[in-house]
């Protein structure tokens, strides 16, 4: 018997206005996502994969439908509670890395731990270990603007793992990386998934990511058209 899903969305819809047009980003889809998964949401641009990732990551709210977190209605959570969930249970990796420019690599990794109230010594030790784990221990005091794209994404992954999340949401994590670096980053994520049991949910149309996925959900026009 498999473990109950951490996230379960039912009938999720989301519509955006684009000038005079209404774009249906999510057209009433159902999805569940559990612990330890390594899942890719794939599809062409505008298929709704980033919107779905944002809704599942509690960065956005659906227009209708329900999203349950551990069986409880996540829609009932206020902004403060949603922020707490994102801080303590989720991690995020963005296409453009989104590191805080005034903080060094180690301080970027420490930041979520400081928000969670962890002590300085613990934060420093864990940040160093995480940076070593993603292969850039020697860059801990370097600010993001002096790091390469691959190094920045490694820092972003270390930051995403700072509070030992159950799920890391990664939106096009390889889009700004060269082919070789992208491969390294994906191998790293897969290793973290296998070694630490961290679940990864990607939104991408990069075939290299799709190749490494254990589960692939294909979206088109806001609906799931294939699962494999």
């Amino acid at each position: 018997m498999s473990a109950p899903p951490i996230l379960r969305g039912e009938g999720l819809t989301k519509t955006y206005r684009l000038g005079e047009q209404r774009v249906e980003a999510l057209a009433g889809l159902d999805i569940a996502f559990g612990a330890g998964e390594f899942t890719v949401l794939e599809g062409p641009s505008g298929s709704g994969k980033t919107t779905l990732l944002n809704v599942l990551g509690l960065l956005d709210r659906p227009d209708s439908g329900t999203l349950a977190l551990d069986g409880e209605d996540a829609g009932a959570l206020d902004e403060r509670a949603r922020a707490r969930v994102r801080l303590e249970r989720f991690g995020f990796v963005f296409q453009t890395f989104n590191l805080v420019p005034v903080l060094s690599a180690r301080e970027n990794v420490e930041y979520p731990m400081a928000l969670a109230g962890r002590g300085r010594a613990e934060r420093e030790a864990r940040a160093r270990a995480l940076l070593a784990g993603v292969g850039i221990a020697e860059k801990e005091d370097v600010r993001p603007d002096l790091l390469s794209g691959g190094q920045r994404q490694r820092v972003a992954i270390a930051r995403a793992l700072a509070n030992e999340p159950e799920i890391v949401f990664a939106d096009e994590p390889t889009a700004n990386l060269d082919s070789h670096t992208a491969g390294d980053i994906l191998d790293l994520m897969r290793r973290l998934n296998e070694d630490r049991g961290v679940a990864f949910l990607f939104a991408t149309h990069d075939p290299r990511v799709v190749e490494r996925a254990r589960r692939v959900v294909t979206l088109r026009d806001g609906a799931i058209v294939a699962r494999r």
């Binding site: 960065l59 922020a83 995020f92 963005f94 989104n98 979520p112 969670a116």
Partner: peptide, 16 residues
């Protein structure tokens, strides 16, 4: 704006 969005995405409360 984007930096603020990032900080909030990773769990920074708006008050902070």
């Amino acid at each position: 704006t984007r930096e603020i969005g990032t900080l909030r995405a990773i769990g920074t409360p708006p008050a902070k």
